[in-house]
Design a protein around this nucleic acid. Structure first.
Lengths: 193, 193
DNA sequence: CGTCAACTTTACACAGTGTCAAGCAACCCC
DNA sequence: GGGGTTGCTTGACACTGTGTAAAGTTGACG
């Protein structure tokens, strides 16, 4: 991908991650450069744009935090209901990890087409997870009657949005545990027969 | 409030409203000025900042669309359950009206403190509506057991966020009617005993 | 010693917000 | 009918942040 020093690249990614996760309200390219101990231009030698850098940070986090391993339990669950609860738990507990970057990427969506596409892609991946859980319910005949799989997926997806997590946990002061329990309960009440 | 020509002021507000509601992705001060047939500086003679202008637009819309009248049925409902359903319907159907401005204001939140406060205040008003509906349920003894009024209000509030409406209606392609019905159903299942 | 890669330094273009000051046209008032 | 006031225009400019461009520095390697 890049012929530059992979060390510098990682330092930039780590620095960006740190700043974003620390909740700094505005993280500029120069802030990231400074935190990485590198010039602002060096950042542009590794990442063509701010949006690209942020996207790479999310991939970096995915690799570091092992998103796949976290979702594994949900995929191997027998019953649809268990699968749903485990998926809600896994994703719900992953949100805080990517919240900083997600927020920055969401904020860029309005102005930056690339950022919109990048975040949209990631959220589409979450939607696939939702669809899989809903589909498992349907397979068990446990999906609430009068609810299409498509609509159920949309609802679950909307419920599990980063924005909702932000509102409940960051704004309303819920604990992470309360959030996850509420979402599991909610999902069960809305989707399960 | 302003010693300037109230006519020009209204023209600016209307122009901003039109542009925002038309879904233009980026609405600059100069765009609004041009649409209002006025110089960019004239806009600043009437509104100190972009955030102020947007907030005034929301108030303008409230006055034009009669938010109070729309919420009246919910306030006069006898049963808590009816009140809840009517509130969800009234607010849910109001969202599309303010979506354009809301989106612009939300996009500014990250960078602009004033915008954050302004939109936060408006959302707080919605929260009060949620709290009133929940309180009516509790009064009837219809609130689901094991659910605090506070938590119920938070949940309802999060559910009814503009972001969720956007995701379901604009992104997932739901009709407005389907959205309202789903939210009413969801609220009943989650909050009502 | 030469050269190549990675990075630094400095400068600049560009968009958009917000400020400032001078000018101008209409109207009001004595 | 001149003098002031009001509401707006015109043009210039400061500031922030992104992204680009080009020349300079440093160290490793052959």
């Amino acid at each position: 991908m890049s012929s530059k020093n992979p060390n510098t690249r990682s330092r930039i990614l780590e620095a960006a991650w740190d700043l974003l996760e620390a909740g700094a309200s505005k993280v500029r390219m120069s802030d990231i450069a400074k935190a990485a101990g590198v010039s602002r231009q060096a950042v542009y030698l590794h990442f063509p744009s701010r949006a690209d850098l942020l996207v790479e940070v999310t991939h970096h986090i995915d690799a570091a935090k092992g998103i796949d391993a976290r979702l594994a339990p949900s995929r191997t669950a027998e019953r649809g209901e268990d699968r749903l609860a485990l998926f809600v738990e896994a994703w719900g507990n992953y949100i805080p990890e990517i919240y900083g970057v997600g927020r920055a990427l969401i904020a860029m969506q309005e102005s930056d087409l690339e950022a919109r596409k990048a975040w949209g892609d990631r959220m589409q991946a979450v939607r696939h997870g939702c669809a899989a859980a809903v589909s498992a319910l349907a397979r068990d005949g446990a999906l609430r009657e009068g609810l299409e799989e498509e609509a159920a997926t949309d609802l679950l997806w909307a419920m599990l949005s980063v924005a909702n997590w932000e509102q409940l946990v960051r704004q309303s002061g819920w604990t992470q545990e309360a959030y996850v329990r509420a979402m599991q309960d909610m999902a069960a009440r809305i989707l399960v027969r």
